[in-house]
């Protein structure tokens, strides 16, 4: 029995289907929930939390049934919503303490843990300021802090990197990783940025239009394709020159954007060959890397319709 299990979970709003027959099994560690906007990620989280009722199907979180033991689930789970949820006229420390108490912590413990958790998310000095004056990055951290304050066994992070600049985004992803690995708390993190979750999650669940597209370990998504990608730089059309010379040597290759894709899995001397060819042609070899899949390939392969968003 995993952390989250669903059987045939369905949610319909009149004519609109948010989730359709979802069968999931999510284990410990960091799991990424990926899908376009409107794919059903937030709906799934709200159903698991017991905030909305599913139309059909069953689910269990940490072994507790969502319909019968909703209260039990909510006492051991943390939630970081996607939307704004911080009152602007309260200080972060006061708010997190209050929320910890609402989750069942005694007053003294709540105060200690609140200060601790705010330090862990990086709001140690700013915790005495009113949250109305926080930047987006700080607000996201504060939201995360209230989700962790009561030491949950599982946290739902709904689009934690929303609205963050690239540097802050990296920080947040590192934090998410730390929660999953160092704190020992299971994490279900959603995003509509497909590549982002590759870095952080152990397991990825892909939703599309309310359906489960795929659910497997990240490594399977990003496994090697057996292809070699090279990038060359030089005068004139370096890419074509290089490609033609490689082809002349009997190596199947073709251009992919500015790169050259080589499909010769069997040859053990491939790297040396590439290096020597580059020298012969007189171009600089910038990159030589094993190609691996990306999550968006899932949309193209299995959905069969349109490109990823």
């Amino acid at each position: 029995m995993g952390i989250i299990d669903t059987q045939g979970l369905t949610k319909r709003y009149g004519q609109v289907t948010a989730l359709e027959g979802l069968d999931l099994s999510i284990g410990e560690g960091v799991t990424g929930l990926v899908g376009a906007n409107g794919a059903g990620k937030s709906t799934l989280i709200k159903i698991l939390l017991g905030l909305i009722a599913a139309t059909q199907g069953t689910a269990q979180v940490l072994g507790h049934d969502i319909r019968a033991e909703g209260q039990r689930i909510r006492s051991v789970v943390g939630y970081m919503p996607e939307h704004d949820c911080l009152p602007p006229d309260v200080r972060a420390i006061d708010f997190v303490v209050h929320m910890a108490r609402m989750s069942g912590l005694p007053p003294t413990a709540a105060r200690e843990r609140a200060a601790d958790v705010l330090r862990h998310v990086g709001l140690a000095e700013e915790r005495y300021r009113l949250m109305g004056g926080y930047s987006t990055g700080m607000k996201q951290r504060a939201k995360l802090a209230q989700a962790l304050a009561h030491d949950p066994q599982l946290v739902f992070l709904d689009e934690p990197t929303n609205g963050l600049d690239p540097a802050a985004r990296d920080d947040m992803l590192a934090l998410v990783s730390k929660i999953g690995r160092d704190f020992g708390i299971s994490v279900l993190v959603t995003s509509h940025l497909l590549g982002e979750l590759e870095r952080v999650s152990d397991h990825v669940v892909v939703l599309d239009g309310g359906h489960l597209l795929r659910s497997s370990a990240t490594t399977e998504f990003t496994s090697d394709t057996g292809l070699l990608l090279i990038e060359v730089l030089g005068e004139g059309d370096a890419q074509t020159a290089m490609g033609e010379r490689l082809a002349a040597q009997g190596i199947p290759c073709r251009p992919r954007g500015p790169l050259i894709e080589i499909n010769a899995p069997g040859r053990t001397d491939l790297h040396d060959l590439v290096r020597d060819t580059a020298v012969d042609v007189g171009v600089g070899l910038v990159r030589l890397a094993a190609d691996h899949r990306r999550i968006e390939d899932v949309f193209r392969e299995e959905a069969g319709h349109g490109a990823a968003h």
Binding site: P81, H83, D84, M99
Partner: peptide, 11 residues
């Protein structure tokens, strides 16, 4: 403020 979601996600 939207804080209601946080309250209702608790026991």
């Amino acid at each position: 403020s939207g804080a209601i979601s946080l309250y209702l996600a608790r026991p």
